[in-house]
């Protein structure tokens, strides 16, 4: 049986050592100038170093270029793509067709992963981007397990599914935190405060806390719970899903490493010793619950939840 890739987002170059040792097969890195909601900020120098570390451990490096670009950045995309091609990264993650066009022009051999976060919702769209040059589609998080498996059955591209961590619910170009401070009259504090981490919106009616932060790409609002389906991997492994992603954004490095090690064990068991996986999976979930930050409840996202419209 095929073993799905375990893809993780590191917080730093040093963290990649830990993740590789914990069992990651691939890492997703980048900088906010081109990529969205990354666990760490990796300059070009960092990406180079990350490549050295990854080669040492035999793991793959993907670089995020999945921002929505305005005209002002279009002309510099080629230079960044060329840099990534020169140092040999394994794939570029894109959402904006401008990146696809740029890669065709300057590095046609570069592998592309299509990831807009919210719009990969049917198998036809995945295959469409496949025909345009993508090798992989990263599915929207708002899909059920059944829908994911159906997409995989029809897919002509690799399929990546997030199995752990928080997900993005909202991205605005506006400076919503800065605007609120400004509205409150806290003029002097805005510049240093609006980029701080650790802020959340509280929703009284649902008793939910939604992390919110600002960066170069605008304002981002994140899910109130962390997805965790370490105990529900069987059907997706059987369906041949190609990559399982752990998103570490807004989490501590040590937590991400520990979660990676637990998923490593879960995937290995699920593929090689299914009975042992069934026996051990509740315990694996319990181990994640034990290290879970108190403000981040776990849930199963949309894997078993119906949405209406």
């Amino acid at each position: 049986m095929k073993k799905p890739e375990l893809l993780v987002t590191p917080t730093s170059v040093a963290h990649i050592h830990d993740l590789a040792k914990a069992g990651a097969d691939a890492v997703l890195i980048g900088e906010q100038r081109y990529g969205l909601r990354l666990a760490g900020e990796f300059t070009r120098k960092d990406v180079r170093e990350a490549m050295d570390v990854a080669r040492k451990y035999g793991i793959r490096v993907y670089v995020a270029m999945n921002a929505l670009f305005h005209n002002d950045k279009v002309d510099e995309l080629g230079d960044y793509v060329r840099f990534l091609a020169d140092i040999g990264v394994d794939a570029i993650v894109f959402g904006d067709p401008a990146v696809l066009m740029t890669v065709r022009e300057v590095a046609p051999q570069m592998k592309l992963h299509w990831n807009t976060e919210t719009t990969a919702t049917n198998w036809y769209a995945c295959n469409y981007w496949g025909r345009k040059g993508a090798k992989r589609a990263v599915l929207a998080r708002e899909l059920s397990m059944d829908a994911i498996i159906e997409i995989k059955q029809h897919a002509e591209v690799e399929i990546e599914v997030q199995v752990h961590g928080m997900t993005c619910m909202f991205q605005s170009k506006r400076s919503l935190i800065g605007n609120y401070f400004e509205y409150q009259g806290k003029w002097l504090e805005i510049e240093k405060k609006k980029y701080e981490k650790g802020m959340f919106l509280y929703d009284k009616e649902r008793d939910n806390k939604y992390p919110i932060f600002e960066d170069e790409n605008g304002t981002h609002i994140m899910s109130p719970n962390d997805i965790c389906i370490i105990d529900e991997l069987g059907d997706m492994v059987d369906a041949g899903i190609d990559s399982f992603k752990i998103d570490g954004v807004l989490h501590e490095a040590e937590y991400i490493t520990n979660v990676t090690a637990l998923y490593r064990r879960a995937i290995d068991l699920c593929v090689e010793q299914r009975e042992q996986y069934e026996e051990e999976k509740d315990e694996l979930l319990a181990q994640i619950e034990a290290i879970q930050p108190s403000h981040r409840p776990l849930d199963t996202g949309f894997f078993f939840k119906e949405t209406v419209y």
Binding site: T116, T119, Y309
Partner: peptide, 21 residues
């Protein structure tokens, strides 16, 4: 107020799919 198509607040808060109406 979000980039259109890049908001799923409704999905998370009320289980209604914003990108399907």
């Amino acid at each position: 107020i979000a980039y259109s198509g890049r908001c799923v607040l409704s999905n998370h808060m009320t289980a209604r799919d914003s990108n399907r109406g």
